[in-house]
Protein backbone atom coordinates (compact mmCIF):
# COMPACT_ATOMS: atom_id res chain seq x y z
CA UNK A 1 0.00 0.00 0.00
CA UNK A 2 1.35 3.39 -0.92
CA UNK A 3 0.93 6.20 1.53
CA UNK A 4 0.11 9.77 0.88
CA UNK A 5 1.50 12.49 3.03
CA UNK A 6 4.91 11.00 3.71
CA UNK A 7 6.23 12.82 6.72
CA UNK A 8 2.70 14.07 7.49
CA UNK A 9 0.67 13.50 10.63
CA UNK A 10 -1.11 10.37 11.81
CA UNK A 11 -3.56 8.96 9.31
CA UNK A 12 -7.08 10.31 9.53
CA UNK A 13 -8.21 7.45 7.39
CA UNK A 14 -6.77 4.32 5.94
CA UNK A 15 -8.30 2.04 3.34
CA UNK A 16 -6.66 -1.25 2.52
CA UNK A 17 -7.64 -3.45 -0.44
CA UNK A 18 -11.21 -2.22 -0.31
CA UNK A 19 -13.61 -3.73 -2.79
CA UNK A 20 -17.32 -3.26 -3.32
CA UNK A 21 -19.78 -4.55 -5.87
CA UNK A 22 -23.22 -3.38 -6.91
CA UNK A 23 -24.69 -6.51 -8.45
CA UNK A 24 -22.39 -7.57 -11.26
CA UNK A 25 -20.55 -4.24 -11.31
CA UNK A 26 -17.36 -3.94 -9.34
CA UNK A 27 -17.43 -0.29 -8.26
CA UNK A 28 -14.14 -0.39 -6.35
CA UNK A 29 -11.35 -2.90 -6.67
CA UNK A 30 -8.49 -3.05 -4.20
CA UNK A 31 -8.57 0.60 -3.23
CA UNK A 32 -5.76 1.35 -0.79
CA UNK A 33 -5.07 4.84 0.44
CA UNK A 34 -4.06 6.73 3.51
CA UNK A 35 -4.86 10.35 4.27
CA UNK A 36 -2.97 12.06 7.09
CA UNK A 37 -4.85 13.93 9.77
CA UNK A 38 -4.89 17.67 9.18
CA UNK A 39 -4.57 17.37 5.41
CA UNK A 40 -6.84 18.77 2.76
CA UNK A 41 -7.11 15.92 0.33
CA UNK A 42 -8.68 16.08 -3.12
CA UNK A 43 -10.25 12.97 -4.61
CA UNK A 44 -10.33 13.29 -8.38
CA UNK A 45 -11.36 11.05 -11.22
CA UNK A 46 -13.73 10.83 -14.17
CA UNK A 47 -17.43 10.09 -13.82
CA UNK A 48 -18.01 6.57 -12.58
CA UNK A 49 -14.48 6.26 -11.25
CA UNK A 50 -15.65 5.41 -7.75
CA UNK A 51 -15.19 8.70 -5.92
CA UNK A 52 -18.67 8.89 -4.43
CA UNK A 53 -18.61 5.21 -3.46
CA UNK A 54 -15.27 5.69 -1.71
CA UNK A 55 -16.58 8.70 0.17
CA UNK A 56 -19.75 6.87 1.18
CA UNK A 57 -17.73 4.00 2.61
CA UNK A 58 -15.57 6.43 4.59
CA UNK A 59 -18.72 8.26 5.76
CA UNK A 60 -20.23 4.99 7.09
CA UNK A 61 -23.08 5.08 4.55
CA UNK A 62 -21.87 1.98 2.69
CA UNK A 63 -20.12 -1.14 3.85
CA UNK A 64 -17.28 -2.51 1.76
CA UNK A 65 -17.53 -6.13 0.64
CA UNK A 66 -13.84 -6.74 1.30
CA UNK A 67 -10.90 -4.90 2.77
CA UNK A 68 -10.16 -2.83 5.83
CA UNK A 69 -11.44 0.66 6.52
CA UNK A 70 -10.17 2.70 9.45
CA UNK A 71 -11.34 6.27 9.97
CA UNK A 72 -10.11 8.42 12.89
CA UNK A 73 -9.00 5.28 14.65
CA UNK A 74 -12.37 3.54 14.25
CA UNK A 75 -12.61 0.30 12.35
CA UNK A 76 -15.59 0.26 9.96
CA UNK A 77 -18.30 -0.91 9.91
CA UNK A 78 -17.89 -2.21 13.48
CA UNK A 79 -17.33 1.20 15.09
CA UNK A 80 -19.53 3.31 12.81
CA UNK A 81 -21.67 4.58 15.69
CA UNK A 82 -18.60 5.69 17.59
CA UNK A 83 -17.19 7.44 14.54
CA UNK A 84 -20.25 9.36 13.34
CA UNK A 85 -20.07 12.29 15.80
CA UNK A 86 -16.58 13.04 14.46
CA UNK A 87 -17.41 13.22 10.77
CA UNK A 88 -19.35 15.71 8.68
CA UNK A 89 -20.62 14.43 5.36
CA UNK A 90 -21.95 16.41 2.45
CA UNK A 91 -23.44 14.15 -0.22
CA UNK A 92 -23.30 14.95 -3.90
CA UNK A 93 -27.04 14.68 -4.48
CA UNK A 94 -29.59 17.12 -3.11
CA UNK A 95 -30.12 16.62 0.59
CA UNK A 96 -32.35 19.43 1.77
CA UNK A 97 -35.97 19.28 2.88
CA UNK A 98 -38.08 21.65 0.85
CA UNK A 99 -40.66 22.03 3.61
CA UNK A 100 -38.24 23.25 6.30
CA UNK A 101 -36.64 26.63 6.83
CA UNK A 102 -32.88 26.82 6.95
CA UNK A 103 -32.78 27.36 10.72
CA UNK A 104 -35.17 24.45 11.33
CA UNK A 105 -33.16 22.18 9.06
CA UNK A 106 -29.86 22.93 10.80
CA UNK A 107 -31.47 22.72 14.22
CA UNK A 108 -32.90 19.25 13.49
CA UNK A 109 -29.50 17.97 12.40
CA UNK A 110 -27.85 19.55 15.43
CA UNK A 111 -30.39 17.64 17.54
CA UNK A 112 -29.56 14.41 15.71
CA UNK A 113 -26.03 14.95 16.95
CA UNK A 114 -27.38 15.18 20.51
CA UNK A 115 -26.67 18.88 20.98
CA UNK A 116 -28.81 20.34 23.74
CA UNK A 117 -31.03 23.34 23.10
CA UNK A 118 -28.58 26.16 23.90
CA UNK A 119 -25.65 24.41 22.26
CA UNK A 120 -27.89 23.71 19.30
CA UNK A 121 -28.84 27.35 18.85
CA UNK A 122 -25.19 28.36 19.13
CA UNK A 123 -24.14 25.70 16.62
CA UNK A 124 -26.81 26.81 14.13
CA UNK A 125 -25.70 30.45 14.42
CA UNK A 126 -22.03 29.54 14.08
CA UNK A 127 -22.58 27.34 11.05
CA UNK A 128 -24.72 29.95 9.31
CA UNK A 129 -22.16 32.68 9.99
CA UNK A 130 -19.30 30.49 8.82
CA UNK A 131 -20.97 29.65 5.52
CA UNK A 132 -22.46 33.15 5.21
CA UNK A 133 -26.10 32.15 5.03
CA UNK A 134 -27.32 33.91 8.17
CA UNK A 135 -29.59 36.14 6.08
CA UNK A 136 -31.51 33.08 4.82
CA UNK A 137 -32.30 31.65 8.28
CA UNK A 138 -36.08 31.91 7.95
CA UNK A 139 -36.34 31.01 4.28
CA UNK A 140 -37.87 27.73 3.17
CA UNK A 141 -35.25 25.53 1.52
CA UNK A 142 -37.43 24.86 -1.53
CA UNK A 143 -36.84 28.42 -2.77
CA UNK A 144 -33.05 28.27 -2.68
CA UNK A 145 -30.84 28.07 -5.74
CA UNK A 146 -28.51 25.10 -6.22
CA UNK A 147 -25.55 27.17 -5.06
CA UNK A 148 -27.40 28.28 -1.94
CA UNK A 149 -28.41 24.69 -1.24
CA UNK A 150 -24.78 23.66 -1.47
CA UNK A 151 -23.95 26.20 1.23
CA UNK A 152 -26.77 24.86 3.36
CA UNK A 153 -25.42 21.33 3.01
CA UNK A 154 -21.97 22.50 3.98
CA UNK A 155 -23.38 24.27 7.03
CA UNK A 156 -25.18 21.05 7.97
CA UNK A 157 -21.96 19.05 7.63
CA UNK A 158 -20.28 21.52 10.00
CA UNK A 159 -23.09 21.78 12.54
CA UNK A 160 -21.52 19.45 15.12
CA UNK A 161 -17.95 20.67 14.61
CA UNK A 162 -16.58 17.40 13.19
CA UNK A 163 -12.90 16.50 12.96
CA UNK A 164 -13.19 15.06 9.47
CA UNK A 165 -15.17 16.70 6.67
CA UNK A 166 -16.17 14.52 3.73
CA UNK A 167 -17.41 16.67 0.87
CA UNK A 168 -18.71 15.19 -2.36
CA UNK A 169 -18.54 17.77 -5.15
CA UNK A 170 -19.17 20.74 -2.85
CA UNK A 171 -18.42 23.32 -5.57
CA UNK A 172 -21.08 21.92 -7.88
CA UNK A 173 -23.61 24.64 -8.69
CA UNK A 174 -21.61 27.44 -7.11
CA UNK A 175 -20.89 30.58 -9.10
CA UNK A 176 -17.25 31.77 -9.40
CA UNK A 177 -17.53 33.96 -6.33
CA UNK A 178 -19.09 31.10 -4.40
CA UNK A 179 -16.23 28.82 -5.40
CA UNK A 180 -13.66 31.34 -4.22
CA UNK A 181 -15.52 31.68 -0.91
CA UNK A 182 -15.74 27.90 -0.57
CA UNK A 183 -12.00 27.59 -1.11
CA UNK A 184 -11.34 30.23 1.53
CA UNK A 185 -13.70 28.52 3.95
CA UNK A 186 -12.17 25.08 3.44
CA UNK A 187 -8.70 26.53 3.87
CA UNK A 188 -9.83 28.19 7.09
CA UNK A 189 -11.35 24.98 8.40
CA UNK A 190 -8.20 23.10 7.49
CA UNK A 191 -6.09 25.68 9.32
CA UNK A 192 -8.31 25.12 12.35
CA UNK A 193 -7.18 21.51 12.31
CA UNK A 194 -9.96 19.78 10.42
CA UNK A 195 -9.08 17.09 7.95
CA UNK A 196 -10.94 17.68 4.71
CA UNK A 197 -11.58 15.07 2.06
CA UNK A 198 -13.11 16.63 -1.02
CA UNK A 199 -14.06 15.30 -4.43
CA UNK A 200 -14.44 17.63 -7.35
CA UNK A 201 -14.41 17.81 -11.11
CA UNK A 202 -13.18 21.38 -10.99
CA UNK A 203 -9.53 20.57 -10.84
CA UNK A 204 -8.36 24.17 -10.90
CA UNK A 205 -10.15 24.60 -7.56
CA UNK A 206 -8.32 21.64 -6.06
CA UNK A 207 -5.02 22.85 -7.46
CA UNK A 208 -5.17 26.00 -5.38
CA UNK A 209 -6.56 24.26 -2.38
CA UNK A 210 -5.42 20.74 -1.66
CA UNK A 211 -2.32 19.57 0.13
CA UNK A 212 -2.84 16.03 -1.16
CA UNK A 213 -4.36 14.43 -4.22
CA UNK A 214 -5.81 10.96 -4.83
CA UNK A 215 -6.59 10.09 -8.43
CA UNK A 216 -9.12 7.30 -8.94
CA UNK A 217 -10.04 5.73 -12.25
CA UNK A 218 -12.31 2.74 -12.87
CA UNK A 219 -12.40 1.81 -9.21
CA UNK A 220 -8.63 1.88 -8.72
CA UNK A 221 -6.19 4.40 -7.27
CA UNK A 222 -3.99 5.66 -10.10
CA UNK A 223 -2.00 8.17 -8.08
CA UNK A 224 -1.86 9.41 -4.53
CA UNK A 225 0.52 11.82 -2.95
CA UNK A 226 1.16 15.38 -1.94
CA UNK A 227 0.07 17.85 -4.53
CA UNK A 228 3.68 19.06 -4.78
CA UNK A 229 4.69 15.48 -5.68
CA UNK A 230 2.19 15.20 -8.49
CA UNK A 231 3.35 18.54 -9.84
CA UNK A 232 7.01 17.53 -9.53
CA UNK A 233 6.26 14.47 -11.62
CA UNK A 234 5.80 16.87 -14.42
CA UNK A 235 9.24 18.41 -13.95
CA UNK A 236 10.75 16.01 -16.45
CA UNK A 237 8.78 17.93 -19.08
CA UNK A 238 9.05 21.55 -20.12
CA UNK A 239 5.93 23.41 -21.07
CA UNK A 240 6.93 26.42 -23.14
CA UNK A 241 4.75 29.35 -24.07
CA UNK A 242 5.81 31.04 -27.30
CA UNK A 243 4.59 34.49 -28.33
CA UNK A 244 5.61 36.22 -31.52
CA UNK A 245 5.02 39.48 -33.36
CA UNK A 246 4.66 37.47 -36.55
CA UNK A 247 5.33 34.00 -37.86
CA UNK A 248 3.21 31.90 -35.50
CA UNK A 249 2.15 29.64 -38.37
CA UNK A 250 5.79 29.02 -39.22
CA UNK A 251 6.45 28.41 -35.52
CA UNK A 252 3.75 25.77 -35.54
CA UNK A 253 5.45 23.96 -38.44
CA UNK A 254 8.86 24.20 -36.79
CA UNK A 255 7.49 22.69 -33.57
CA UNK A 256 5.74 19.94 -35.54
CA UNK A 257 8.99 19.15 -37.32
CA UNK A 258 11.01 19.12 -34.08
CA UNK A 259 12.17 15.66 -33.02
CA UNK A 260 11.00 15.89 -29.40
CA UNK A 261 8.70 18.90 -29.09
CA UNK A 262 4.92 18.72 -29.33
CA UNK A 263 2.38 21.45 -29.84
CA UNK A 264 0.06 21.31 -26.83
CA UNK A 265 -2.34 24.17 -27.40
CA UNK A 266 -3.07 27.56 -28.92
CA UNK A 267 -3.57 30.08 -26.18
CA UNK A 268 -4.78 33.59 -27.04
CA UNK A 269 -2.41 34.23 -29.93
CA UNK A 270 0.40 32.19 -28.44
CA UNK A 271 1.55 28.60 -28.79
CA UNK A 272 2.24 26.19 -25.98
CA UNK A 273 4.71 23.40 -26.65
CA UNK A 274 5.78 20.47 -24.47
CA UNK A 275 9.20 18.86 -24.60
CA UNK A 276 11.65 16.94 -22.39
CA UNK A 277 13.20 19.00 -19.61
CA UNK A 278 16.48 19.65 -21.39
CA UNK A 279 17.82 23.24 -21.51
CA UNK A 280 19.93 22.48 -24.58
CA UNK A 281 16.88 21.19 -26.41
CA UNK A 282 14.88 24.26 -25.42
CA UNK A 283 17.65 26.49 -26.69
CA UNK A 284 17.74 24.50 -29.91
CA UNK A 285 14.00 25.02 -30.41
CA UNK A 286 14.32 28.76 -29.76
CA UNK A 287 17.18 28.97 -32.25
CA UNK A 288 15.12 27.08 -34.86
CA UNK A 289 12.27 29.52 -34.40
CA UNK A 290 14.51 32.56 -34.84
CA UNK A 291 16.26 30.98 -37.82
CA UNK A 292 12.86 30.21 -39.30
CA UNK A 293 11.92 33.89 -39.31
CA UNK A 294 9.58 33.80 -36.28
CA UNK A 295 9.67 37.18 -34.49
CA UNK A 296 9.73 35.68 -30.98
CA UNK A 297 8.73 38.12 -28.23
CA UNK A 298 8.35 35.62 -25.44
CA UNK A 299 9.74 32.12 -24.90
CA UNK A 300 8.94 31.12 -21.34
CA UNK A 301 8.56 27.92 -19.33
CA UNK A 302 5.20 27.59 -17.65
CA UNK A 303 3.94 24.95 -15.28
CA UNK A 304 1.35 22.41 -16.34
CA UNK A 305 -1.99 22.62 -14.64
CA UNK A 306 -3.26 19.85 -12.43
CA UNK A 307 -5.83 19.18 -15.10
CA UNK A 308 -3.17 18.47 -17.73
CA UNK A 309 -1.26 16.19 -15.37
CA UNK A 310 -4.49 14.46 -14.44
CA UNK A 311 -5.33 13.78 -18.09
CA UNK A 312 -1.80 12.54 -18.75
CA UNK A 313 -1.95 10.16 -15.79
CA UNK A 314 -5.25 8.80 -17.03
CA UNK A 315 -3.75 8.29 -20.49
CA UNK A 316 -0.81 6.38 -18.97
CA UNK A 317 -3.26 4.30 -16.95
CA UNK A 318 -5.15 3.33 -20.09
Amino acid sequence: MSTIGKGGGDPALRLRDVEIRFGAIRALSDISLTVPEGSLCGLVGPNGAGKTTTLRIIATDLVADFGEVEVLGCSLPREATKLRPSIGYMPETAAVYAELTLAEYLSFFAAFHALRREARERAVETAMELVRIRHMADRRLEGLSRGEQQRVLLARALIHDPRLLILDEPASGLDPQGRVELRELLRLLNERGKTVLISSHILSDLEDLCTHIVLIDRGRVVFQGRQSEIMERNLNRYRIRIEALEGLEAAEQIIAAHRRAQLVEHDRGALVAAMPADPAMAHELLQSLIDGGVAVTNFARTSASLEEIYLRLLEVDE
Binding site: D61, Y89, A95, F112, L153
Partner: peptide, 13 residues
Protein backbone atom coordinates in the same frame (compact mmCIF):
# COMPACT_ATOMS: atom_id res chain seq x y z
CA UNK B 1 -32.02 6.60 -1.55
CA UNK B 2 -31.04 10.24 -2.12
CA UNK B 3 -28.70 12.63 -0.39
CA UNK B 4 -31.17 13.25 2.42
CA UNK B 5 -31.17 9.61 3.43
CA UNK B 6 -27.40 9.49 3.21
CA UNK B 7 -27.04 12.56 5.40
CA UNK B 8 -29.49 11.08 7.91
CA UNK B 9 -27.74 7.74 8.10
CA UNK B 10 -24.37 9.42 8.62
CA UNK B 11 -26.00 11.48 11.38
CA UNK B 12 -27.01 8.18 12.96
CA UNK B 13 -30.69 8.22 11.98
Amino acid sequence: SDGRGRALRVAGV
